[in-house]
Design a protein around this nucleic acid. Structure first.
Lengths: 330, 330
DNA sequence: GTGAAAGCGCTAACAG
DNA sequence: CTGTTAGCGCTTTCAC
């Protein structure tokens, strides 16, 4: 089970390791004959290049670190797109997961040890001080989260506008009593809450703007929806912090015998795989994981090259599906 | 932004890098005074050890590779536990994600390049030939999947028994028309299907055993449930392939005005975070991610040390929550 | 208790 | 086109 090295191939082919390296990297400097022979031998010997050694030798590691949450479907979408965006630029992705039993500092630390050229934090929960400190050690990029910290790059969708789109859509359908179940302090929840208030006010519904504390999970959405249903006059539409939260809202409504969207309309956020599932068909605000990922890799590389941090704000898009309709009696 | 190395610390402290290494690793061989001084200087300089260099030098990389699916909540649970189990043995985890646009061979290949001592594939979709080939290159361990391939270790829960527990529970409640929505060829689906047939037969309900093609997603569950509802006499209970699938089943039932569990009981599989959410409270079969992860790391290390592959089968446990009850009119 | 020297597997100059 | 020489940052003998 001992791994084949370049030296083994060089010996077998009767050439130097440098030449093998040239062939393996596919750079010019070897005759076609040698190239073919080396490749054949490498294949026979089951050679797999040692990334660590390669990275160690190279001035730049060509690795981008990504800290993400294991249980956040939207992070899954982002990570998937980040792999592709990084690969397109010749970079590898080093993943480090955040979970209830593995906090963000731990995850980031692991990335630092891998000598990533830059780290991208997906919807990070770190505060300004921690972010500032991190940015002092490694080019740092916040993805899908708003923050104004010196030295930290940001790539995100315009959350204020995103929620605005949702409100416009619902008001256009005839809704007036609209509630927002927020992210309870999670990345982006402040912006979305503001966006909600702004948009409602714009429609002259400032006083009908109802905000409840929610969270990032189905559970949070379910709890908040239950609270709403306990009111004398529940809203006719709900905008949840994200798709998972919205799923909890829908479940609670259905469990209690309310129809979606006939009785209550529900809007999610993220357009994660959760929302597009045929049986869910959730109206949601798309952050466009693909564009976000592409912009993130772009800026991460710029930062790594010594560029100045920027804030890149992408426009979200409303994806109308089947969980929104005119309010009852409209 | 250029990283501090051991040489920098050695110079600043006026000692050799070897001594710094001794201190950083916390092994005996340095005086308390030196130790304290080195640690202080390292801290001041913001030193972070370079894992790549360390791994390269060490005979063993102390890294375990994990290929997992980004959108599978149960994989998230497993990964979280694997981090802890590996850390307890002094090992790091290298993550490589599988997603619709990133196939398993790609993910495994990335792991190989990192010189993992062993790779663990979570619910892999690789066939016997591919697994055999992989096992020839690196100690390979299948987690949460059944397979009988030479040289490949397996750590899984007893799926036949797991489904059996679900059937026993439902029959005990009085159900007789029970359907199983399967995994459509996914890892474990054969076992679960067999387990379903076995258990139903054991209860003399072999002819009432209804199996539908499903899948791993909410969507698959929703589609299958819709098909069941189109029948003249739909079942009074459904056992889904996993929690995601079960969620789709529940959603479809609720959407169509059926109550869960009053009209139809639903059982999931995995006991992922999805199932325990307060508003869901799904009855499900627990594979105990923690125990599975511990056993997996255990065997991965044994394999890496040259041990013979084994099949470790853990007993699943039925977690009764709120989606199962006696059938209507019972 | 401490340091010098030799590599881990690879790539990046250079020479030839 | 091909080979030699030097390391990347760290750990590991083996001296002192």
């Amino acid at each position: 089970m001992t791994r084949t090295t370049m030296a083994d191939i060089a010996k077998a082919a009767g050439i130097s390791t440098a030449l093998v390296s040239i062939v393996m990297r596919g750079v010019p400097g070897a005759s076609e004959a040698t190239r073919a022979r080396v490749l054949r031998i490498a294949d026979e010997l089951g050679y797999v290049p040692d990334e660590r050694a390669r990275k160690l030798r190279q001035a730049r590691s060509r690795v981008l670190g990504v800290a993400f949450e294991l249980q956040q479907p939207f992070h899954g979408d982002l990570v998937e797109r980040l792999y592709a965006a990084a690969a397109a630029r010749g970079y590898d992705i080093a993943l480090s997961a955040v979970a209830p039993t593995r906090d963000e500092p731990t995850a980031v630390d692991a990335l630092l040890r891998e000598r990533c050229e830059a780290v991208m934090l997906l919807g990070s929960g770190l505060d300004a001080a921690a972010l500032g400190a991190l940015a002092g050690r490694v080019p740092t990029l916040l993805v899908a989260r708003h923050a104004d910290v010196d030295g930290v790059g940001v790539v995100r969708a315009d959350d204020v506008r995103g929620i605005g789109l949702a409100v416009d859509h619902l008001v256009g359908l005839g809704h007036r009593r609209i509630a927002h179940i927020d992210g309870a302090g999670a990345a982006g929840s402040d912006d979305r809450r503001c966006g909600f208030h702004d948009a409602m006010s714009r429609h002259g519904l400032g006083r009908a703007a109802d905000v409840l504390t929610g969270g990032l999970t189905e559970e949070a959405g379910a709890r908040a929806m239950a609270a709403l249903l306990a009111r004398p006059t529940p809203p006719s539409a709900v905008i949840a912090f994200n798709d998972r939260c919205a799923t909890g809202v829908v479940d609670t409504l259905l469990h209690r015998g309310h129809r979606v969207p006939a009785d209550v309309s529900v809007v999610g956020y993220d357009d994660s795989r959760l929302a597009e599932a045929p049986h869910v068909q959730m109206t949601t605000v798309s952050q466009d994981a693909r564009a976000l990922a592409a912009a993130a890799v772009d800026q991460a590389l710029r930062l790594a090259a010594g560029g100045a941090p920027a804030e890149i704000v992408l426009s979200p898009r409303l994806v109308v599906r089947a969980t929104t309709a005119a309010p009852p009696g409209a």
